[in-house]
Design a protein around this nucleic acid. Structure first.
Lengths: 125, 125
DNA sequence: CCGATACATAAGTCATGGCTTATATATTTC
DNA sequence: GAAATATATAAGCCATGACTTATGTATCGG
């Protein structure tokens, strides 16, 4: 299950920053290290995780290593979330006559209408 | 940015197991604790994280607390990944004449055509 | 009310992983 | 081929967080 490694890879803040930088354009390791405020080995380690998740790919260019976004991992995660989303909709359709948006139109879904019964709930925080 | 908390929440394996259980049907805390092999407090702590990410919602039912999937967090993450996906496609379209599948048709994208130049790459592992 | 049940919260332990410094490996330049 | 540059790998430190065992707080049954 590759989407697991993708979720793990994207779960870290520094790696998300790397992805945001690569989102603009490909970058060599040194450029990424100076952009973020971490050392070069830290960046290399993060890039290895991202590479295993197939979120980035390398292209050796001289003695530099240029990293760029790769579609594999993201595609995998997207597919998983779509199947998950279907079940969320079903769970909602079960007791909500006014379901949220359909899968192809991402938008904030409608709120749940009302609790089934009010019963003096316990302190919610 | 809520999608950050969603990525963090889904980054943990135990929490993903909880989500998979809730994907079938709503469950009380005790049921989840016996299904997984962790203690009840551990489950409660994980559920709190999932709740903050708006991936689950609670419905008090007598002295039980029934958790079920909620659409908010997943919707947020899906929206973020879609915008991200657009940039991945652009990055690919820049140097690949045969781009991967469009956003509404999740499928394995075509492979990159060829490296720019072969140059006796360094040992790749 | 009182015991039992179901869950949340507190506090402490321990492992995972993110960061660092040091060093090894490639590649270009002179 | 030697020095310089760019990156990967190794090893160790340390913080975050996942788990545990208490214990507190509601809710139901008698």
């Amino acid at each position: 299950m590759t989407y697991v490694s993708v979720l793990h890879a994207m779960g870290d803040g520094t790696r998300r920053e790397l992805l945001e930088l690569l989102r603009r354009q490909p970058h060599a390791v040194g450029e990424l290290a100076t952009a973020l405020r971490v050392t070069q080995p830290a960046v290399s380690q993060h890039l290895r995780v991202l590479e295993h998740a197939r979120l980035v790919a390398v292209r050796p260019e001289g003695r530099r290593r240029v990293y760029s976004l790769a579609p594999g991992g993201l595609q995998e995660l997207r597919a998983y979330l779509e199947s998950f989303w279907a079940d969320v909709l079903n769970a909602f359709a079960a007791d909500d006559p006014n379901p949220p948006a359909p899968p192809e139109a991402p938008a904030t879904p409608a709120r749940r209408r009302a609790p089934r019964r009010r019963r003096r709930s316990r302190g919610s925080r």
